[in-house]
């Protein structure tokens, strides 16, 4: 029962945060909305016994990623909502219809059974402790773990290429 209550509360928090993100005029509020949704999801992970994921969710997402977002919002300034002008009603209608139909389609698809996979290979009472995750991560997934070095290198190099150099480094600027 306690779990049901916890789930109910944080599901509402997550949805409220998401909707806040969606409707807030000011991007800072959007960021805060997303942040609360992420915290709510971290709680969900704990409910699902995924402790490491919950922890990383808080550290990486709520901590690093959202900080980066807020930082960029501060950097480029919160723009004036009026600058965007009124949004055509048709756009709102289309958006809500699309989102609604999408949700309905998924729910409809899952209405029979949400999880049909076989549990033959599973562990009966899975506990996502650091140890269990590490066994998997540094066992089967080692090579994948190593391959993320490419992703991170690209992120670093790409950011440098886009933002770090001054225009004078280019041939076209020098010419």
């Amino acid at each position: 029962m306690a779990e049901a209550v916890t789930f109910g509360i944080f599901a509402i928090v997550a949805l409220a945060g998401a909707v806040t993100m969606l409707v807030a005029k000011n991007p800072v509020y959007s960021a805060v909305g997303l942040l609360s949704a992420m915290f709510a999801l971290a709680v969900m992970y704990i409910l699902l016994d995924a402790h490491l994921v919950a922890m990383v969710q808080v550290i990486i997402y709520a901590g690093a990623v959202m900080t980066l977002f807020l930082f960029v919002i501060m950097l480029i300034g919160v723009d004036n909502p009026n600058a965007y002008g009124p949004r055509p009603v048709s756009q709102s209608i289309v958006t809500w219809v699309v989102a609604g139909v999408f949700f309905a389609a998924i729910v409809l698809a899952g209405s029979g059974a949400w999880v049909t996979g076989s549990a033959a290979f599973g562990t009966a009472d899975l506990n996502g402790t650091i140890e269990n995750v590490a066994d998997e991560m540094f066992g089967t997934w080692t090579i994948v773990f190593l391959s993320t070095v490419m992703l991170l290198t690209i992120a670093a190099v790409g950011t440098i290429a886009l933002a770090y150099f001054t225009g004078a480094d280019d041939d076209e600027a020098a010419a």
């Binding site: 969900m44 992970y45 699902l48 016994d49 995924a50 490491l52 994921v53 990383v56 999880v115 996979g117 076989s118 549990a119 290979f121 599973g122 562990t123 009966a124 009472d125 899975l126 996502g128 269990n132 995750v133 066994d135 998997e136 991560m137 089967t140 997934w141 994948v144 993320t148």
Partner: peptide, 19 residues
């Protein structure tokens, strides 16, 4: 991913989430 991982008892789902 995490919910399915719990349901089926497969830790892969959590690892996937981390990735």
């Amino acid at each position: 991913f995490v919910a399915v991982s719990k349901e089926l008892g497969l830790i892969e789902g959590q690892v996937a989430a981390l990735f």
